[in-house]
Write a protein that binds this DNA or RNA. Sequence first.
DNA 1: GCCACCGGTGGC
DNA 2: GCCACCGGTGGC
Length: 272
Amino acid sequence: MQSSPTKLTLKVETEENDFHGSAFPGHLDSTLQQPLDVISSSEEDKDHGMEDEDIQSGEDAPNQLVVYDPAANGADAIEAVSDPLEHQPIPFRSYSIPNQSSRVLPSVGAFTAQCAKCFKWRLIPTKEKYEEIREHLSDQPFVCETAREWRPEISCEDPTDISQDRTRLWAIDKPNIAQPPPGWQRLLRIRGEGSTKFADVYYVAPSGKRLRSTIEIQRYLLEHPEYMAEGVTMSKFSFQTPRPLQEDYVRKRPTRLTAPFDGLNLGMSRSS
DNA sequence: GCCACCGGTGGC
DNA sequence: GCCACCGGTGGC
């Protein structure tokens, strides 16, 4: 049924789907994206002015951005949003990251969805709302009017909430992923740049147990029939991860050396 | 000792 | 080549 209007071309390398601007993600049909932001280390010193240099230090920090990050309230680009959601979303656990001095991993800084009609991006106020939209994205394409639920005035006439720039790492999410069962949480963890994978999905059961594969979930459900009694089934789980727009964010696996060498002799090639 | 994160790999 | 799964381990 790809003939359907499924508006979501997942991004870039998807097959077919003509997208208009071609490589330009800003023109996909309707997609959900998760711009990521590096939780800039500390979040407590919010109005610290530009705080810790890192943010805009440019070059070495190309992907760190912050979308409308709760901490830096860097509103410049995103003024629009703020009002209706003063209770800042960012569902993620409060950044309890202590001081992680060594390395700061990226994390999702904002959720956005692209209007299927005007192609502008709209920030989604909470992770839960985002998951709800994502679950039905194909059947119920996201449009600016959808956002009236939390922004009564919004329409396609309004400027986009956010646009791509290299201050943020953008990732295109997969559509139609079921919302986690009540009491369960779906976590997306972004790996560091240069890793062999972009991200990992974990589910946290009501008990707090963290599960990292469908097999682990199956086993867990079998051990806890009470959830199954509530209707929790495997169809509610998906370990699909978003794709980063930055092509080289993930390190490619070195192609297995398909024997360009003639063997071991190189080990011993001393002399001659 | 735990666990968040990363790498390896087998199967597709 | 991609991705699901899971073992290892560094840092706490």
